[in-house]
């Protein structure tokens, strides 16, 4: 464990130094991320200036969905940014080198680049999230808070599992980058509660494309929109999904043909 933590720290320190090689670029990128967040908030204000409720949800309800989405998205990007560079590793053959390291190959490839620029935006989002809950929203019961925390961590893990699945597919065809973007675009549907969409789409987002479970899941338990039985099913689903992703990676590795000579 200590060994892995040291690797995480070394990777992070290297990423940090690389990320801030050009402070102006770093500043512009961080500003862009914060601006995107602000623009979406303005969009919410614009909508709720005209209506009081959307499908029975108040402004604060919807803002809570959005904040959870932003946190899950940002934290998983911070941890799994290395996945975006995976295609180039496969194409230039450097992936083979990672198999020679005395470290778990999923760990070294998925957490190869801990994005320091994301790490700077996360405290901002988290502070706003806590401020919002404390001043404008409500704290749930302790049991629901614990269930939310577990569900939130599982959402991040499940998002990383999707990154891993994309990498597994990327072992045979260099499509990881595109697949990650497909997930990121699809997950945007979770900025709002997925049951506001047409019923067919809503079903789809709770089954085949599990945005409803992964992104909305923690919110549903916080707002008590699902019972304990459903929460348990969601948890089982996410754990199974993570295990399937890990197993798919090892299956895909069996078919991997090195590009290096």
């Amino acid at each position: 464990m200590k060994f892995y933590l040291r690797i995480i720290w070394t990777n992070f320190w290297l990423s940090f130094k690389e990320g801030f090689t050009n402070p102006l670029s770093a500043l512009l990128f961080i500003s862009g991320k914060l601006l995107r967040f602000v623009f979406f908030l303005l969009f919410f204000f614009f909508i709720f200036k005209k209506v009081k409720l959307i499908a029975g949800y108040t402004f604060n309800d919807l803002l809570f969905y959005y904040l959870v989405f932003v946190l899950v998205d940002s934290i998983s990007q911070f941890l799994g940014r290395g996945a975006y560079f995976f295609d180039s590793l496969v194409i230039n053959g450097n992936l083979d080198k990672t198999f020679l390291y005395p470290v778990n190959d999923i760990f070294i490839n998925l957490f190869s680049y801990l994005d320091p620029l994301d790490l700077i935006t996360i405290p901002f989002f988290l502070t706003y999230f806590l401020y919002f809950i404390h001043h404008s929203y409500y704290w749930p019961s302790l049991s629901r808070l614990l269930a939310f925390s577990l569900s939130f961590l599982l959402s991040i893990a499940a998002t990383l599992a999707i990154y891993l699945l994309s990498m597994a597919l990327g072992l045979t065809t260099p499509l990881t980058g595109e697949l990650l973007w497909i997930w990121r675009n699809t997950s945007k549907l979770g900025r709002l509660p997925v049951n506001i969409y047409p019923r067919f789409i809503s079903y789809l987002l709770f089954s085949l494309l599990p945005v409803g479970i992964i992104i909305n899941g923690p919110v549903l338990i916080w707002q008590a929109r699902i019972g304990w039985w459903e929460w348990f099913l969601f948890t089982i689903f996410e754990v199974s999904f993570i295990l399937i992703a890990i197993s798919s990676w090892y299956q895909a590795l069996k078919h991997y043909q090195s590009a290096s000579s």
Partner: peptide, 8 residues
Amino acid sequence: YALLKHNF
């Protein structure tokens, strides 16, 4: 579509 469906 969802916003319009819900009276916005």
